[in-house]
Simulated assay, not measured.
Amino acid sequence: MTRYALTRLALLVLGLFVASAVIFLTLRVLPGDIAQVIAGTNSTPEQVAGIRERLGLDRPLPVQYLDWIGGVFRADLGRSLLTGTPVADELAEKAEVTVPLGILSLVIALAISLPLGVLSAMWRGRAAGTALSVTAQGLAAVPVVWAGMVLVVVFAVWLGWLPAQGFPRAGWDQPALALRSLLLPALTIGIVEGAMLLRFVRSATLQAVGQDYVRTAAAKGLTRDAALIRHGLPNVGLSVITVLGLQIAGIIVGSVVIEQLFGLPGIGRMLVADVANRDLPKVQGELLVLTSFVLIVGFLVDLVHRVIDPRQRESA
């Protein structure tokens, strides 16, 4: 197990280095010049060149990359080219919205997919099971923006239960208002991601029904459903853990769009604005943090799966 963990950790570190290099180089080929943005439309070429020199943008790309990645190791993601504020500080502030939104979305997705996915499999061949399966297929195909707009119309416009946009200026100093502001965006992401995960849970449950240990338990006197719940669901849980990494990545991608739609001051909304403004240090930091989070979650999911699955431990 230790050898496996160290190998996966080495791959994680390598993946982070590759991701940082890809992020850095990709941003350098985007059109536009941040020095021109800062200088203004009426600036002279000499003024633009002076700004480029002051910001270090005239240095060779390998030097700029090494400076940036060296700062990352010191927990310094640089400063915004437009405002001069530390990128790490702004990320920490915006994470107070994005992280709770992601956690709440994941909880909703699991609350939908786990029980309904198992029921859909147990009710296979019945009208209720078919209805659950068809509904999940339809919801999984719905664009998250369209789902958000429908929920806004229903819960914010028609019923008036939840706010359509915004986040309290006092933030989590007003926890009730902050939570109400996140419920509708989290429902939007959670329903769509939950529908996708429901299909996977149903498939894993149906596969477990056909396993020998479930049939043996049924032959010893348990009903099919009781045998599945007692002996099959633990293996379904292992399969769900494996796919959770992909679901979390989907939630992160969805949050970028949803924060724009619901006017939430999170990392996703900040990222879109910074890309438009060509604020490279901020965009680099935001993309690296989001990518690192996805890679680290995948690493932890692999370790947890290895720990709780005795078959994998024996094959080590």
Score class of each variant (00 low, 15 high):
T2Q: 08
R3Y: 04
L6D: 08
A10G: 10
L11T: 06
L12R: 01
V13C: 09
G15D: 02
F17N: 01
V18Q: 00
V18T: 09
A19V: 12
S20R: 04
V22M: 12
F24Q: 00
D33F: 04
D33G: 06
A35C: 09
A39W: 03
P45E: 12
E46G: 08
V48F: 10
V48P: 11
L55W: 07
P60Y: 10
P60F: 10
Y65L: 11
Y65E: 01
L66P: 03
L66I: 14
I69K: 04
G71Q: 11
F73V: 14
R74D: 12
D76H: 07
L77D: 07
G78Q: 06
G84P: 06
A88G: 04
L91H: 04
E93F: 00
V97G: 03
V99T: 00
V99I: 14
P100D: 05
I103K: 06
V107S: 08
A109E: 02
L110Q: 03
A111W: 03
A111S: 13
G117I: 01
V118H: 05
S120V: 06
S120R: 02
A121T: 11
M122S: 07
M122D: 00
M122G: 00
R126H: 11
A131Y: 04
L132T: 06
L139Q: 03
V144Q: 02
V145M: 12
W146L: 15
M149G: 00
L151T: 01
V153P: 00
V154P: 01
F155V: 02
A156S: 15
P163I: 09
Q165R: 15
Q165V: 15
L177D: 15
P185S: 12
L187M: 14
G190M: 11
V192P: 02
V192W: 00
E193R: 12
G194R: 01
L197P: 02
R199T: 10
F200M: 14
V201I: 13
A204L: 09
L206V: 03
A208T: 04
G221Q: 10
T223I: 08
A227S: 13
L228Y: 02
L228M: 13
R230A: 14
R230L: 12
R230D: 06
H231T: 02
G232V: 03
G237N: 10
V243L: 14
L244Q: 07
Q247W: 02
A249G: 15
G250A: 06
G250S: 05
I252W: 10
I252C: 05
G254C: 07
L261T: 08
P265Q: 02
A273N: 14
D274M: 13
P281N: 08
G285C: 08
G285L: 11
L287S: 10
L287I: 14
L295F: 11
I296K: 03
V297I: 15
G298Q: 14
H305R: 14
R306L: 15
I308F: 12
I308P: 04
I308V: 15
D309L: 11
R311E: 04
A316N: 09
